[in-house]
Amino acid sequence: MSGFDSNPFADPVDVNPFQDPSVTQLTNSSSDGIEGFNPFTENSKLTNPAQTTIPAQITPSQPAVLQPSVEPSPQATASAAQVNLLRQQEELERKAAELDRREREIQNKSSGSTKENNWPPLPRIFPVKPCFYQDFAEDIPPDFQRTCKMMYYLWMFHSVTLFLNLLACLAIFTVSSSNGVDFGLAILWFVLFTPCAFVCWYRPVYKAFRSDSSFNFFFFFFVFFIQTAVYIIQAVGIPHWGNSGWILALSVIGTNNAVAIIMMVVAGFFTACAVMAIILLKMVHSKYRRTGASFQKAQEEFSQGVFTNRTFQSAASTAASTAAQNAFQQGN
């Protein structure tokens, strides 16, 4: 019945919510922490300062290991760059010289100016003037100058050998009158083969290297192959052929040793000519394969050269006019 004794119309009892034991206990325990909290200190925390923090364990650092450097030194890099620049500069200078040479050639052709002949180098007071123009530095590209000069030296050695062959045949003619034929033919070979060799195989190879002419290359190969065979025959020395070769020189050993020695020296010169001719033939052929020449180009150059030749044109026009006049007269 006690539950019904309370008056429901009486004033309610004032209940202070802050008097709750749980609330008062919490405020009492945190009052000390708030009083000791200084927000302006550096190590202030929002947590209770009474709580102690355990510092983290610091692990000892490992010593740094230096890796070996694989990059090149500045001096090596600078020297390599300098070498590269020098090589590029040499290549550019070579190309500039080649372009300058070609430009001069084009200008000379366009202006119609002709170069003054300078070979053979004869004195100005001499009645005979030079017949050819020759300048290796200006006409021949640098890659072919050495080979072209060696061909020129071979022609000079060829001329000296023919002159010595004339003297050797003269010597054997003084010993034996039956060898007069050899002496006469030796004179003929010297007078004939010296200029013919210059015109028939040296000048074609010079013009082939100068203008990259396929026709001149083929003409040179044909003639120089025959010249190499002639060198071999002259070195053999068949009697009564006008050549002081090994056979003729050995046949004189029992008769006159001095003449035999002279003829053997000349036979050695002919042998050297044959060996050098074979070597230079291979060298020129290797250069020819690098120039891009072909038999078709040689045919085109030959046809263009023939039809553009003034002598051929004048001869063809003269023949055509003569034939037309004859046909007109016969018609009348």
Rank of each mutant, 00 (worst) to 15 (best):
N16W: 06
Q19W: 10
N28W: 00
D32N: 05
G33Q: 09
G33T: 13
F40S: 08
T41C: 04
S44M: 07
L46N: 03
P49G: 00
V65E: 03
S73Y: 03
Q75M: 11
T77V: 12
A78N: 09
S79V: 05
S79Y: 11
D100G: 02
R101E: 05
R102Y: 00
Q107S: 07
S110I: 00
R124V: 15
F126K: 10
C131S: 11
D139Y: 03
P142F: 13
Q145C: 12
C148D: 05
M150D: 07
L154Y: 15
L162H: 11
L164M: 07
N165V: 04
L167P: 02
A171E: 03
S177K: 05
V181T: 12
V191K: 07
L192A: 07
C196Y: 11
F198K: 08
F198A: 10
R203M: 10
A208M: 09
S213F: 09
S214A: 12
V223N: 01
V230K: 04
A235P: 00
N257F: 06
V259N: 12
I261S: 11
G268M: 14
A277D: 00
S286R: 08
R289W: 00
T291I: 06
S303M: 15
T308A: 15
A315C: 14
A316P: 01
S317L: 06
A319R: 03
